Amino acid sequence: MSRQIDFRSVSPHSADEVYATMVDPDYLRARLERIGGPGAALLEHSADVQGARYRLRLGLDAKDLPSVVRSVLAGDVTIERNERWTRQDSGRYVGDVEVTIMNAPASATGGMRLRDLPDGGSELNVRADVRVSVPLIGGKIEGVVGEQVKRLLAAETAFTQVWLSENGR
């Protein structure tokens, strides 16, 4: 079984500006330093105007995890996230994401879309399926993980907006 999550954010900045920021290695390192948790790092990176690929490591301190998750996972959690973006046209990008929670029966996969809005600004949509392979309580953990993913995406979006306003392209 899996749990689907949907996330949407809007920005006053164009999709081209948001894309250039989201795939910038300095931005990614700064974002990881601020909200990536213990051991966060940019592990791989390649990007240009046509597309990007990068792999991130994020960490979660065990004390910050909900009890239902701590009952299945021992200690801190390490997450690897692979993202790939492709430029479709000016102001339109599509991507996919794969998330692996190391040493845990949990993962997520999904798609992303970044596009200009007709009246200005841009919109980012993320749709992902969270899977937790634990009998009986897997569905409950999927719900908790899904909410954590939404919180992380919201924090990343807020960080991106601040970064764009301070480091405008």
Rank of each mutant, 00 (worst) to 15 (best):
162 V>T: 14
121 G>Q: 06
29 R>C: 04
103 N>V: 01
68 V>R: 02
138 G>S: 13
93 Y>S: 07
149 V>Q: 00
153 L>N: 05
104 A>S: 14
13 H>A: 08
163 W>F: 15
54 Y>E: 04
146 G>W: 03
150 K>G: 01
5 I>G: 00
137 I>Q: 15
42 L>N: 04
34 R>A: 11
12 P>T: 10
39 G>P: 02
2 S>Q: 11
81 R>I: 10
120 G>R: 01
114 L>A: 09
164 L>G: 08
6 D>L: 12
129 D>Y: 06
102 M>V: 08
130 V>Y: 02
106 A>D: 12
130 V>P: 00
27 Y>D: 03
23 V>H: 05
168 G>Y: 04
24 D>W: 00
89 D>E: 13
119 D>P: 03
45 H>S: 04
169 R>C: 15
34 R>D: 01
132 V>T: 12
121 G>P: 11
59 G>S: 05
21 T>I: 12
118 P>S: 04
98 E>K: 04
12 P>Y: 09
125 N>I: 13
158 A>F: 01
137 I>T: 14
75 G>C: 13
13 H>M: 07
89 D>M: 08
52 A>V: 09
74 A>R: 12
70 R>K: 15
124 L>K: 04
70 R>G: 05
97 V>G: 06
167 N>P: 08
159 F>Q: 03
109 T>I: 12
70 R>V: 06
44 E>R: 09
75 G>F: 10
28 L>I: 11
53 R>Q: 09
65 L>F: 06
151 R>H: 11
134 V>Q: 13
39 G>L: 12
164 L>W: 10
43 L>M: 08
63 K>N: 11
119 D>N: 15
168 G>P: 07
73 L>H: 09
103 N>P: 01
84 R>G: 05
138 G>N: 11
166 E>W: 09
47 A>S: 14
43 L>Y: 00
132 V>R: 07
34 R>T: 11
133 S>W: 00
147 E>S: 14
131 R>P: 00
114 L>N: 07
51 G>C: 10
155 A>P: 04
41 A>D: 10
56 L>Y: 06
31 R>C: 04
48 D>P: 15
108 A>Y: 01
59 G>Q: 00
77 V>Y: 06
150 K>W: 06
157 T>Q: 13
147 E>F: 04
159 F>E: 06
161 Q>K: 11
43 L>A: 01
112 M>S: 12
140 K>I: 02
44 E>N: 01
98 E>F: 09
144 V>R: 08
126 V>D: 02
41 A>T: 05
167 N>S: 13
95 G>S: 02
99 V>M: 09
147 E>R: 10
111 G>W: 05
17 E>R: 07
149 V>N: 03
107 S>G: 10
99 V>D: 03
40 A>S: 11
130 V>S: 02
63 K>E: 14
116 D>F: 08
48 D>W: 05
124 L>G: 04
142 E>L: 02
159 F>P: 02
